[in-house]
Design a protein around this nucleic acid. Structure first.
Lengths: 128, 128
DNA sequence: CGGCTATATAACCACAAGGGAATGCAACCT
DNA sequence: AGGTTGCATTCCCTTGTGGTTATATAGCCG
C-alpha cells in the first residue's frame, strides 16, 4: 500500500480528497462527513499521508489536513495514453454520426481475425 | 469490485491494460508477460471484463482480449479537478524559477507557511 | 494540577481478494 | 473418435485491509 492507485481504490479516501479539495479540514470534520469512527478516519489519513497525498498542520490539539495533489500526477500519467483512445473514439463517433451512417472499423487495430461470433463481453455463461 | 478504481489498484491488471494498449492479445500471451499462472490471468481478465475495460473475441479456442478504454473516463473525470491544482503549482514554480534565481523554500516537500513544528508526514514517531 | 478535547496507535476481528493446483469444457487436428 | 490445445471455473489457502473498541498522547482550560 503505497502508490496512489492503491490509495484511490478506497471510496472513503477518495471522499477525503474530495473534501480536502474544497478546503483544509480537521479530522473531526472529516470523520463526521465520512460516517466512520474517528480512528477509522485517522487510519485513512495515515495512508494518505504516507502516499504524500495530504499534509498535516498542527494547531494545538487539532490537525488541519490539506491536499497534496502532486502524487496524482502519476495516475494521470498512466492514464494519458488511454485518454487519447477514448477521446479519439468519441471524436470518431461524432464525425461518424455527423457524416455517414455506416459502421467503420474500430480504431484501426491489427491482428484479431474476423469475429463473426463475438459476444463482446459475455463469452458464454454469466448469469447462473 | 466493480468500478475502475478498484480494478486499477491491481498491478497485474494495469499491466494487462498496458499490454492491450499495444494490440489485442491472447490469454496465453498475457499470462507469459505477467508471470502468473493461466488461471490467475483469467481471473484478472474476468474482473476487467466485468468492469467493461476489456472485450473478448472468440477465435476457435482462442480468446482475443482487446482494450475498452471508455470506463477509464470515470477515473479521468474524478482526476480532473485535481489536475488543475498540480499544473497550477508547476506553472507557478516554473514562473518563479524563471523570473527570480532564488532558492525557493517549497519545491519538494513544503512545510506549511508557519509550520514551526509540523513534521508534514511523520507527526512524531515513525522509524522505530 | 485535574480534567477535557482532539487525534493517533494498538489490539483485534471479519471478510474479501490474489494466488496456485486441479478440473471442466469447447474446439481443433489427425 | 481420441488426443490436444486454450481458456474458464472451482476449491482452497493465505494475506491484507477496512472496520471497530479500547488505550495512549498531547495540548488546552479552569
Amino acid at each position: 500500500m503505497a502508490i496512489p492507485f492503491d490509495v484511490l481504490a478506497e471510496p472513503s479516501r477518495r471522499q477525503i480528497l474530495d473534501l480536502l479539495l474544497e478546503r483544509p479540514r480537521l479530522v473531526g470534520e472529516l470523520t463526521e462527513h465520512l460516517g466512520l469512527t474517528q480512528p477509522g478516519t485517522s487510519k485513512h489519513l495515515r495512508v494518505l499521508r504516507e502516499a504524500g497525498l495530504v499534509r498535516v498542520r498542527r494547531d494545538a490539539q487539532r490537525r488541519w489536513y490539506e491536499l497534496c495533489p502532486e502524487p496524482l500526477a502519476e495516475v494521470d500519467a498512466w492514464l494519458a495514453p488511454y485518454r487519447r483512445l477514448w477521446t479519439d473514439r468519441l471524436d470518431a463517433l461524432e464525425r461518424h454520426l455527423d457524416t455517414m451512417p455506416e459502421l467503420p472499423d474500430e480504431t484501426g487495430e491489427p491482428e484479431p481475425p474476423d469475429a463473426r461470433d463475438a459476444p463482446t463481453d459475455a463469452p458464454d455463461g454469466e448469469a447462473p
